[in-house]
C-alpha cells in the first residue's frame, strides 16, 4: 500500500478511474432526479464517445508522439460497421445491450484492421508527412463510406459500391444508403455503456503504457535512434500503439453512431479529427485525465453557450485561442513551474 501511494503515476491512474466513477454516479443521480436538461441528457453519450476518442488519440499523439489528423476515419469505420451489424442482427438478438456489445466489438475489430492497413505505410513516415498521410486516409475513408450501399434481405447482406443497390428481394431493406448514410438508426447506446467503455479504454491504455511494450513505445517517442540501437523494434511497437488507438476509436465510433438517429459519412470529416486533436492538446499530451476533462468540457461548452446563440462558435474559437496563448505564455509557465515542482509534461505517465 505504501508503495502504491508513493508511485506517482499509479496514484494518478487510480485518481482518474475514481474521477470517472464519481462523475458517472453524480450525473446518473442528477439525471434520475431531473437535474439535467433534455439537451444535456442528449449530450451524455456523445460526450462519452468523444472522451474515448480523445483518450485513443492521446495514445497516438501523446504516448507515441505521432501526429494523426485522420482519427475521425476510424470513428467512421466503427460507427458504420457497428450500425450495420446492429441493424442486421435486430431480429436475431432482441436484447439492445448484447447487440451494442457485439456492434462495438465488430466496430473496434474493423477499425483495428483499417488501422493495420493504414499503419503499414504511415508509420514509415516521420513528423508532418505522417500527419498529412493520416489526413489523406481520413478523407479516403470518408469518400469510400459515402459511396457504399448495403442492403439486407432473406438471403443475407448485399453490398454495392458507387451504384445504388438494386434487386433486393421483397421484405428486404436498405441499411446504408450511400451519401445519405444510415437514415433510420435505432438508438441503443446508453450512458452506462459509454461509462463502461471509458473505463475499459482507460484500463487498456494504462496497462499498455505501464507495460514493457508501453515503455518501448515511449522510448521510441523520446529518441527513435537511441531506442532502436538498444534493440527495440520500431515498426512492431508503433504498430501496436497505432492499432490499439484505431480499435478504441472504432468502439467510440460505434457508441457515437448508436446514439444518433441518422449517421452520415460527412459527420466524420477532417473537422472532427481536428476537434478531437484539440481535446488532446488542451488536456495535455500523455495526460489521460486531461483528455477526459477537455473532451467533456469542450463538448458541453457549445451547449452552455447556447444563450449567446449565434455567437457561440465565435466565442468557442476565441476561448480556444486564448487558452493556447495563456497556457503557453512563458511568464505564466514559470509561475506554474514554481507552484508545482517537477511538472514533466508528456512524461507524466512514465
Amino acid at each position: 500500500m505504501k508503495k502504491f501511494l508513493t508511485n506517482k503515476s499509479t496514484f494518478s491512474n487510480y485518481m482518474t478511474y475514481a474521477g470517472v466513477v464519481i462523475a458517472f454516479i453524480i450525473l446518473t443521480i442528477m439525471g434520475e432526479a431531473g437535474g439535467l436538461s433534455s439537451t444535456m441528457k442528449g449530450q451524455l453519450v456523445p460526450v462519452c464517445a468523444y472522451v474515448v476518442m480523445a483518450l485513443s488519440l492521446n495514445l497516438t499523439v501523446g504516448v507515441m508522439g505521432e501526429l494523426s489528423l485522420g482519427h475521425a476515419g476510424f470513428m467512421s469505420v466503427g460507427a458504420f460497421s457497428g450500425a450495420v451489424v446492429a441493424s442486421a442482427l435486430q431480429q436475431a438478438i432482441p436484447s439492445d445491450g448484447i447487440r451494442l456489445v457485439i456492434a462495438m466489438v465488430v466496430g473496434a475489430i474493423l477499425a483495428g484492421l483499417v488501422g493495420i492497413v493504414i499503419g503499414v505505410p504511415v508509420l514509415r513516415l516521420r513528423g508532418d508527412y505522417l500527419a498529412i498521410v493520416t489526413l489523406a486516409f481520413g478523407e479516403i475513408i470518408k469518400s469510400i463510406v459515402t459511396n457504399l450501399y448495403i442492403g439486407i434481405d432473406a438471403k443475407g447482406l448485399h453490398f454495392s459500391f458507387l451504384n445504388p443497390l438494386e434487386g433486393l428481394e421483397a421484405g428486404g431493406r436498405m441499411i446504408m444508403n450511400g451519401p445519405m448514410g444510415i437514415p433510420g438508426n435505432t438508438k441503443i447506446s446508453t450512458f452506462t455503456a459509454g461509462f463502461i467503455l471509458i473505463i475499459i479504454t482507460l484500463m487498456i491504455i494504462f496497462n499498455l503504457v505501464n507495460s514493457r511494450s508501453g515503455r518501448a513505445i515511449m522510448a521510441l517517442r523520446d529518441n527513435r535512434i537511441a531506442a532502436e540501437s538498444v534493440g527495440i523494434n520500431a515498426t512492431k511497437y508503433k504498430m501496436m500503439g497505432f492499432v490499439t488507438s484505431a480499435a478504441l476509436a472504432g468502439a467510440a465510433g460505434t457508441l457515437f453512431g448508436m446514439s444518433q438517429n441518422a449517421i452520415i459519412a460527412s459527420k466524420f470529416d477532417f473537422n472532427t479529427s481536428i476537434l478531437v486533436l484539440v481535446f488532446v492538446v488542451l488536456g495535455g499530451l500523455g495526460r489521460m485525465w486531461g483528455s477526459i476533462i477537455a473532451a467533456a468540457a469542450l463538448t458541453i461548452l457549445p451547449e452552455l453557450l447556447r444563450e449567446f446563440s449565434e455567437y457561440r462558435m465565435l466565442i468557442y474559437a476565441i476561448v480556444l485561442i486564448l487558452v493556447m496563448l495563456i497556457t503557453n505564455n512563458p511568464g505564466l509557465k514559470n509561475l506554474f513551474g514554481k507552484l508545482i515542482p517537477r511538472r514533466k509534461g508528456a512524461a507524466e505517465n512514465e
Partner: peptide, 14 residues
C-alpha cells in the same frame, strides 16, 4: 509546434 497548430485551428474557426 502542436500548440501553434491548435491556435491556427482556433483562428480558422474564428
Amino acid at each position: 509546434s502542436l500548440a501553434v497548430l491548435i491556435t491556427a485551428i482556433g483562428v480558422s474557426y474564428f
